[in-house]
Design a protein around this nucleic acid. Structure first.
Ligand SMILES: [Zn+2]
Ligand SMILES: [Zn+2]
Ligand SMILES: [Zn+2]
Ligand SMILES: [Zn+2]
Lengths: 132, 132
DNA sequence: CTTGACTCTATAGTTACCATAGAGTTTAGG
DNA sequence: CCTAAACTCTATGGTAACTATAGAGTCAAG
């Protein structure tokens, strides 16, 4: 199958697939006479794997690592676990950061009485005050 | 004062300051004979304003908009309020996304019994299964 | 045999910077 | 006075994971 069909079957864009190839995540089997990429059904599964990983926000570098690990079935999977644990930690950190940000934004928002002028806007005044 | 001193007083990097200038957020008053940027103390406050906004994750485009608004003291401040409201909404959305992601990552992590091999790793198996 | 749909490569853009190169400027010490 | 260190200048490339073009070539149907 050609790249367009692979894209349709997986819900990826054609450009993404070419991008994954450039990043060594998904090679096409071979090229047609006219230099079109050709794929088989195994590639559909591989691309779905990549897509699944991306939906969990794993980076392309990490996905590449998982693919490489997958090719060494006998090895222990501690690296996999470590990667996921590390991600969980990063996400938790980010959630906390955003929660702090949210609190600050709410406080800022409350400093403006609606229907004010720019000159008297509590938000702009607050933003002008040096933080602790 | 020269750019290095401004950087120290505000905690910004020299490159950031030059970047803000390129983005029309903070102009230097004038240049020295040797073409060095020169600033006065008002610029310290302006840069602190920018930094404060950045700490709230406002984009440079939005900060530019706030600076422009600030120069029209008589206008109503609805645009300011709208911008902050919109930000609060975006952040809330992002927190929800990350929370979903966190749940998925935790479930994924639980699918691996530690001390497993790559071949039997529940995480890799789960990732290989097509999502609903 | 032409037309439209598809594909190819290469390049620029996104965001807010950081890092570097190579050159010029300023300042303090010897 | 001169030199070396510290500072500054512009321009460029890199970051992440793509998206969106441009311009050219390929393929299938009518
Ligand atoms: Zn990661
Ligand atoms: Zn207001
Ligand atoms: Zn915004
Ligand atoms: Zn495992």
């Amino acid at each position: 199958m050609k790249i367009g069909e692979l894209a349709k079957l997986t819900g990826c864009s054609v450009q993404s697939i070419r991008h994954y190839e450039k990043e060594k995540l998904l090679a096409s089997l071979r090229r047609s006479d006219g230099n079109f990429r050709l794929y088989d059904s195994a590639k559909v599964d591989q691309l779905k794997f990549i897509k699944h990983c991306r939906s969990l926000d794993l980076s392309l570098a990490e996905i590449r690592q998982l693919i490489e690990l997958n090719q060494q079935p006998g090895m222990g999977c501690e690296d996999v676990n470590r990667m996921i644990d590390s991600h969980i930690e990063q996400v938790a950190l980010r959630i906390n950061e955003l929660q702090d940000l949210q609190d600050k934004l709410m406080a800022l928002r409350n400093s403006c009485a609606s229907q004010s002028t720019v000159k008297e806007c509590g938000i702009l005044q607050t933003l002008s005050v040096t933080q602790k």
